[in-house]
Computed example of a mutant assay.
Amino acid sequence: MSSTDEIDAQEISTVITAAEAAMKDADAQRLIDRYTADVVKFDLAPPLGRRSDDARDVARQQAWFGTFDGPVDFQVTQLEIEVGGDVAWAHSLNRMSATPQGTDFAFEMWFRASYGLRKTPDGWRIAHEHTSTPFYMDGSLRAATDLKP
């Protein structure tokens, strides 16, 4: 990896891991600012996908934060980045833990994330994000949210 690619990879890492503090602080704007204007997102929650302004809906994200009592603990782990000029891709295993509003217990889940990034005049931004959980193929079709790396 060239020194330019190494600098880009560090900037990309900063963009992706900025979600950790933004989630803990319930800062929807900071979370959304990491995306390009034409971002395509395939989130854990329905629908199957969102694009552009729909994917960058700060009010929706802020409302989601309001469904929890206290902060959302979020951690990006095993992040791997590949840079190729003005585009890059990355993937990670992420952990999220929070206490749903009205309950007295926190959940913890691990999930997969893939990112496509583009270098913009404002720096690296996420142009595509895909998060998913595996499911048990034992006939139950139950999401495997109990898995840990």
Results as ranks from 00 to 15, higher is better:
1 M>Y: 10
1 M>R: 09
3 S>T: 10
4 T>P: 14
4 T>L: 15
6 E>H: 09
6 E>R: 12
7 I>V: 11
7 I>L: 14
8 D>S: 14
9 A>Y: 06
9 A>H: 08
10 Q>C: 11
10 Q>W: 10
10 Q>F: 10
11 E>N: 09
12 I>N: 01
12 I>F: 03
12 I>G: 02
13 S>L: 10
14 T>V: 11
14 T>M: 12
15 V>W: 00
15 V>S: 00
17 T>R: 13
17 T>N: 05
18 A>M: 02
21 A>F: 08
22 A>W: 01
24 K>G: 07
25 D>F: 02
26 A>R: 14
27 D>H: 00
29 Q>G: 14
30 R>Q: 13
31 L>A: 08
31 L>C: 11
32 I>H: 06
33 D>K: 06
34 R>N: 15
37 A>T: 11
37 A>I: 06
37 A>L: 05
38 D>A: 12
38 D>K: 07
40 V>S: 11
40 V>P: 13
40 V>M: 08
40 V>T: 14
41 K>P: 15
41 K>H: 10
41 K>Q: 14
41 K>N: 13
42 F>D: 10
43 D>A: 13
44 L>K: 02
45 A>C: 06
47 P>K: 04
47 P>S: 06
47 P>E: 01
48 L>A: 15
49 G>R: 03
52 S>K: 06
53 D>L: 09
54 D>V: 07
55 A>D: 08
55 A>V: 09
56 R>A: 03
57 D>M: 05
58 V>E: 04
59 A>K: 09
60 R>G: 13
61 Q>I: 11
61 Q>G: 07
62 Q>S: 09
63 A>N: 09
63 A>I: 07
65 F>P: 03
68 F>Y: 13
68 F>S: 02
70 G>H: 01
71 P>I: 08
73 D>L: 12
75 Q>I: 07
75 Q>E: 15
75 Q>T: 15
76 V>H: 03
78 Q>W: 08
78 Q>F: 09
79 L>W: 00
82 E>I: 15
85 G>R: 00
87 V>L: 07
92 S>E: 03
95 R>P: 08
95 R>Q: 14
95 R>I: 14
98 A>L: 02
100 P>I: 11
100 P>A: 03
101 Q>G: 07
101 Q>V: 12
101 Q>Y: 08
102 G>P: 06
102 G>C: 02
104 D>F: 01
105 F>G: 12
107 F>A: 00
108 E>R: 08
110 W>N: 01
110 W>M: 00
110 W>V: 00
110 W>G: 02
112 R>V: 10
113 A>S: 10
114 S>C: 12
114 S>N: 14
116 G>H: 04
116 G>C: 02
116 G>V: 10
117 L>D: 01
117 L>M: 05
118 R>S: 09
118 R>N: 08
119 K>Y: 08
121 P>H: 05
122 D>T: 07
123 G>K: 01
123 G>S: 06
128 H>D: 13
128 H>G: 14
130 H>E: 00
132 S>H: 02
132 S>L: 00
133 T>E: 09
133 T>Q: 11
136 Y>N: 14
136 Y>W: 14
137 M>Q: 13
138 D>Y: 06
140 S>Q: 03
141 L>V: 13
141 L>F: 12
142 R>W: 07
142 R>Q: 10
142 R>C: 04
143 A>Q: 10
144 A>M: 04
144 A>W: 05
145 T>H: 08
146 D>M: 01
148 K>H: 12
148 K>V: 15
149 P>R: 05
